[in-house]
Amino acid sequence: MDIIIIGLLLGGTYALMAMGLQLQYGVARIMNLANGEMLVAGAFGTFWFYSATKFSPLISLAVIVPLAFAANWAIYRVLITPLVRRAKSQGQLEVDSILATFGLSFIFVGGLLALFGGDYLSYSYLARPIFILGQPYGLNRVTAFIGALALCAGLYIWLHKTRAGLALRAVAVSPSAAGLVSINVPRASALAFALGGAVTAAGGSLLSIFLTFDASLGVVFTLKALVIVIMGGVSDIRGAIVAAFILGLAETIVASLVDPGLTLAAAYVLFIVILLIKPEGLFGRRSS
């Protein structure tokens, strides 16, 4: 039972991280291999903020989210836009953006190493037990879960109730058709990319409340986010949320029953199962 609850708590934060990648891949059509590094940067930012000010890590979000938004906006404008312009086809853009963001991920890792060193960083916040159904759980995990859920809900409502959200969803369905109904596609893509980066960094912030981070962990999170997005379907937020919970559960099961060092293997097993059985994602329909 406690495995299930811990898995669900983890899944909540994963959902947030995957929504970030989904915005970047589903709307802006950029397969961002530096996504996990953005998450680690968010976690490090919170660590630094908490050590310096002793304010709650949740308050650090107020600083980290706008910063990450600005940084990702700049990345899209400076690095990605030239690739979009020079790409002759979607395939070419895909290859170029994979290469560029892969290079970017190394720059992130190098930067984080230079700023924070190569040690594991963690801090202690709300490390008290809270009792759910008579079992003790870390209050920090529950806090992060609630924070992630609140952000997910906010994002979902924003996407479905505002004009800007509608524009983003339209671009996700078809960039060319969205352009025809006078949606500024480059702007919407930049917005989606920046927002996605900000959401991912927020996910990192929240994860840092109960997880230990080091600079090289980014790739693992990139992979987890990618697996969730593929499992849930590229353009379906509900799918990503369900998939995030499945991954959270699978990881917790592997970690507590086999070995905590094998969490990536859990993600890969899910990945292979999805590829072999339903490559279009849980809720995706087989296209023609």
Binding site: L99, A100, S105, G110
Partner: peptide, 17 residues
Amino acid sequence: PSQTTLLLGVAFLLIVY
């Protein structure tokens, strides 16, 4: 020796662009 990762990333971007 301590900046290899960063520089490798920079070199990579330079080549791609």
